[in-house]
Design a protein around this nucleic acid. Structure first.
Length: 154
DNA sequence: GTTCTTACA
DNA sequence: TGTAAGGA
């Protein structure tokens, strides 16, 4: 009945980060956190490395861990203790994920209607006859309902 | 050359 | 937390 939102049509994400994997040295150089600290933080449970039953025993980190380390580093530089920096970063990341899901649920694409680019926000009513659009004018967001005939749905 | 664990200044 | 040692 409703055109799928981006979140539904992309299994939860537009950009895949699952192939972004780094070694401990890379994470260290990217964030400015020493390898010693990374290993220590892991024992404390602040960060996690992927399962490493590999040929050797080297740690492998994913994008999520990179974000976590970056966040901790930033807050550490601002004077937070390691525990507080970790907690604060977790909260920020959680907010970010929630916000991302909110946007992906709402966004159904861009569409030009009567010469104006409109943000498609999906069905406005349960019947699926009214669709909600938004556009920006003079830095203000305007909302507009559009009557949609069923034959033009895809 | 890098990473790993353990141990010590 | 940095650094050294001794292996992988």
């Amino acid at each position: 009945m409703n055109r799928p939102s981006l979140r539904e049509s992309n299994s939860g994400h537009i950009f895949s980060t699952e192939k972004l994997i780094f070694g401990i040295g890379e994470i260290s150089r990217m964030t400015g956190v020493s390898t010693r600290q990374l290993r220590y933080w892991e024992t404390k449970g602040y960060i996690n490395s992927k399962d490493r039953q590999d040929e050797q025993q080297q740690r492998v980190y994913g994008y999520a861990t990179f974000l976590k380390v970056s966040g901790i580093k930033t807050m550490l530089d601002e004077g937070y203790t390691l525990a507080a920096a970790s907690a604060q970063t977790d909260a920020l990341i959680q907010e970010g994920l929630t916000l991302r899901n909110f946007v992906l649920d709402a966004y159904h694409g861009l569409e030009e209607i009567n010469g104006r680019m409109m943000l498609d926000l999906g069905d406005f009513d349960d019947a699926g006859q009214l669709r909600l659009y938004a556009y920006v004018e003079d830095h203000h967001v305007h909302y507009q309902q559009v009557l949609v005939s069923k034959d033009r749905r895809q």
